[in-house]
Amino acid sequence: MSPAESEDEFTGIHCRLDELLAERGMTLTELSARVGISIVNLSVLKNDRARAIRFSTLRAVCEALDCEVGELLALSER
């Protein structure tokens, strides 16, 4: 595995899923049921461990949370 493929690679993208769920009084379990995505996969996204996200997933999450992509994903610094 090359250094660019290491598990702790910093993408510079922060997922605000935790914050948006809290603002809406929604649990990860409820979001999972609404969008049809496993809690495990949503947790990976929530904890900034995702390396990619499908547009269909992004759209489903944004629709369920009534938010824009820019509210869910933000550039971050390390």
Rank of each mutant, 00 (worst) to 15 (best):
T57P: 00
S2D: 11
S38N: 10
N47S: 15
T57D: 05
E68K: 13
F55W: 11
F10W: 15
N47V: 05
F55M: 13
G25Y: 10
E77N: 10
E5S: 13
R51M: 05
P3V: 12
C15K: 00
M1K: 10
L42P: 01
L73G: 06
S38P: 03
E63Y: 05
N41W: 07
C62R: 02
C15E: 01
E5D: 14
T27P: 03
V61S: 00
R59T: 07
I39E: 02
L21Q: 06
N41Q: 09
D8V: 09
D48T: 10
S76D: 13
G70C: 04
V69H: 02
L17E: 00
T11E: 01
K46C: 07
S32T: 07
M1Y: 10
G36N: 06
E71W: 01
M1D: 13
A64P: 03
A64W: 02
V69Y: 11
A64S: 10
S32D: 08
G70D: 14
E23R: 14
M26Y: 02
L28D: 03
G70A: 06
L17H: 03
L73T: 06
V35R: 03
I39H: 02
H14E: 14
S43C: 11
R78Q: 13
E5A: 15
D66W: 07
E9W: 12
R34L: 12
S2W: 09
L73R: 05
A60C: 11
D66Q: 14
K46H: 06
R16G: 01
M26K: 12
E71C: 05
V40E: 07
S38F: 05
E23K: 15
I37V: 15
A50T: 05
A33E: 15
S32Y: 02
T11C: 05
L73A: 07
G36T: 03
E19C: 06
E19L: 07
P3L: 14
E63P: 01
E9F: 13
L73I: 08
R51K: 15
N47Q: 14
R34A: 10
L45P: 00
S76Q: 15
S2K: 15
E7M: 09
V69G: 04
M26G: 04
E63D: 15
E7S: 10
N41T: 11
V69D: 08
R51H: 13
H14N: 12
G12N: 04
A74R: 12
L28P: 01
V40G: 07
G25H: 11
A4L: 12
E30D: 15
S2N: 11
F10M: 08
L58T: 03
S38R: 07
R16M: 11
A33N: 14
T57E: 07
G70T: 11
E77D: 12
R59I: 10
I37F: 02
R16H: 14
L72C: 10
V44R: 07
G70K: 10
K46M: 15
V40R: 13
A52E: 14
V40F: 07
V35N: 03
I37A: 04
A52T: 05
D48G: 04
S43D: 08
T29R: 15
D18G: 05
V69P: 04
E7G: 04
L28T: 04
E23M: 13
V35T: 14
G70M: 06
C15P: 02
